[in-house]
Design a binder for these strands. Structure first.
Lengths: 229, 229
DNA sequence: ACCTGAACACCGTTCAAGT
DNA sequence: ACCTGAACACCGTTCAAGT
């Protein structure tokens, strides 16, 4: 189904029949990025994954940058926010929009850096991806300018958060023991406030949970927006 | 001064005398990144900027990744927050810490992506860079766990913000006309809330100012943290 | 100890040629 | 119109050799 009426190995067009297209190229590229990381996505490896000459790709996409931008578009087009439950508060709608956005980025962690930094490619789709955020904030009664600023701070937070999350592998990022040790090795009095917090939390307390970290960030943001109304 | 008792062209050791060192290598690398961007920083170009064989660098730094991580450390070591004015509220201290952090990243915009994504290199210096944030939040009376979460949301916001700012060049990012056009080209009813905001602001209203965007983000965050006390 | 030259296994992309 | 092969100007890094 992925490549038309193809009876060969699934998902991989038999060389000769399944004509190359932007769509199949980007699908193959995304597969490489997801499996082996962004640095593995070279034009030559992409071509060989497609069973094709490296130069063939250039008939459908002008260069490597266009392939990567194309991937950003593909991923963003997958973003779907469930229509908000009718009775939901704007606070909950805003949080749902943020969670949906995070969910999409998490599906392709190896692409996160590209997504978050390829502003050109993003802004093409952002007018659609951003709608749920505007939808939620429209109900606050805030002036348009404040709505834009509120969306920005939420999106910036998500981007920053995703960078941290994407560069880690496990669900929980265990910097407890490591951080505690580093803090203790510090010249005395160099970072007293951090030291006090670290000692109070102890080893286990510093274990970072991405899910709860994300939620607590959302809480701060929502309350901050509320306070500005 | 940059390279010891050197009488040759300033800042550039005469080949032969000024022995290579991690320090001079990183200084040259940072110059390349600042001037020509991160992708221009190749081992071969770095070597030629130093007037040296490409392989010589490997005697002081194990590989290219180490050069880039080294740059992150160099930049972070420049971070200095002025000691807080004695009467300053924790809110103002937190904002000052954030502004100082942004200021450092802005000094090397071409390195922003690397800084924000090289978590390993960052965390080495973060125990020191983070202190002003902990200092400020210690005065809130929040429990240690909440302090950590508050620092995280602020830092994540700054990181996300910096990505947007670094990938733009001018002070003000003028997506007004462009965005308005794109919104109007949208299938009707596809993004009503965004459309309403965009029309209300008009072309000029959408002109994005990074400085005021950053400040309004800080305000939301500070008020959100206040509300959690 | 520090530096080098030649070499290897890659890159992205141009260009002229094939069907 | 689409695909290809050979070639160009690069990469990062290893290894053996020089001082």
């Amino acid at each position: 189904m992925a490549s038309g009426g193809n009876i060969g190995r699934p998902g991989r067009p038999r060389s000769g029949d399944g004509r190359l297209s932007k769509k199949v190229i980007l699908e193959a590229a995304l597969r490489i990025v997801d499996r082996d990381g962004i640095e593995a996505m070279t034009m030559r490896r992409l071509a060989s994954a497609l069973g094709v000459n490296p130069m063939s790709i250039y008939h459908h996409l002008p260069n490597k940058a266009a392939v990567l931008s194309g991937l950003v578009e593909v991923v963003f087009s997958q973003l779907q926010v469930a229509a908000p439950a009718d009775g939901a508060s704007w606070q909950d709608q805003l949080k749902d929009a943020a969670r949906a956005y995070r969910r999409v980025l998490r599906t392709h962690p190896n692409l996160a850096l590209q997504i978050v930094s390829d502003t050109a490619a993003v802004s093409d789709v952002l007018v659609i991806a951003g709608e749920p955020f505007y939808q939620a904030l429209a109900q606050t009664g805030l002036p348009p300018r404040s709505i834009v600023e509120s969306v920005d701070v939420v999106v910036d937070f998500i981007h920053g958060f995703m960078l941290g999350e994407a560069s880690s592998t496990s669900e929980t990022f265990d910097l407890g023991p490591d951080l505690l040790k580093r803090v203790r090795d510090l010249p005395a009095g160099k970072a007293p406030a951090l030291t006090r917090v670290a000692e109070a939390l102890g080893e286990s307390g510093f274990r970072y949970e991405f899910d709860s970290g994300f939620e607590s960030g959302l809480n701060v943001l929502v309350r901050g927006i509320e306070a500005g109304i």
